[in-house]
Simulated scan of single mutants.
Amino acid sequence: MYRGDYQLIGSELSFFTRKLEAQLRCQQISWRYLFKTEERKAELEAKAGTHFIPLLMTPDKWLIHDTIAIGPMLSERFKKRAVIPTTPLQRACCFILEDAFNHWLGRVCVHSRWCYPDNIAWAGPRFGANMMLDRSIDEGLSATELEQLAPIGPMMYEGFGKAVCEANGVGPQQAAAVQGDFKNMLDALATHFADNDFLLGDRPCLADFALAGASKAHFICDPEPESWLGQHRDMLYKYTNQFFGDWQGELAPWPADDRVPKTLSTLLDYLQGSYYQSAPANIAAGLAGEKFYEYNYGFGTTRARTQKRLNVARMHVQDELLKAGAADNRQVKALFSERGILEYYFA
Rank of each mutant, 00 (worst) to 15 (best):
F16M: 13
R25I: 15
A212T: 02
Y6F: 15
L271T: 05
Y157I: 01
W104A: 05
K262M: 06
I9Y: 01
E98N: 09
K79E: 15
P225A: 03
N130Y: 04
Y276T: 06
E226K: 14
K291R: 15
K323D: 12
Y297E: 15
T191L: 12
T240N: 10
Y293I: 03
L105M: 12
I84M: 14
L186T: 04
R303V: 12
K19N: 07
V108F: 08
R40V: 11
A100W: 02
H192M: 05
D208E: 00
K79C: 09
C115E: 09
A143N: 13
M235R: 11
Y239E: 06
L97T: 07
K79Q: 10
L189C: 09
G245R: 11
Q272D: 04
Y237A: 10
R77F: 08
G180S: 02
Y345N: 05
I220R: 03
A327R: 11
M131D: 09
G180I: 07
P59V: 07
A347D: 11
P117I: 07
G159Y: 03
W228G: 07
D5L: 08
G340L: 04
L267Y: 04
A288S: 12
N311R: 11
G10H: 00
L251W: 05
M57L: 14
G128S: 05
A281K: 06
V170T: 15
K162C: 13
L287I: 13
Y270M: 07
Y2N: 15
D138Y: 08
M73R: 13
A281M: 15
L268W: 00
I29R: 05
M131V: 09
W31N: 11
F209K: 04
N241W: 11
I220A: 00
E76Q: 14
H218C: 15
M131A: 14
A190C: 02
L268C: 10
T302P: 00
Y297L: 06
R32L: 07
A288V: 07
Q318I: 05
H103W: 12
W62G: 10
A313S: 14
K238G: 14
L149D: 09
F193P: 00
A210D: 04
A288P: 07
G230V: 07
D118M: 08
D197W: 01
A212P: 00
N119D: 08
L264P: 02
L321N: 01
F78V: 06
A163C: 06
E147G: 05
R259T: 14
P172K: 12
Q23I: 10
M57N: 13
R3K: 13
L271A: 06
D246S: 09
N119R: 02
W114N: 04
E290H: 13
Q90T: 06
D5K: 14
V164N: 10
V260P: 09
D195R: 08
D5H: 08
L206A: 05
L63T: 09
Q90Y: 05
Y237N: 15
I96S: 02
L149A: 11
Y270W: 14
H65L: 08
P223S: 10
R330L: 10
P117A: 05
G245Q: 10
E21G: 03
S215C: 05
P253Q: 14
A69F: 13
Y276K: 03
D208H: 00
F243A: 04
K61M: 14
Y157K: 13
I29E: 08
Y345K: 02
A143E: 13
R3P: 05
V83G: 01
W104I: 00
L133H: 01
K79I: 14
Y295L: 10
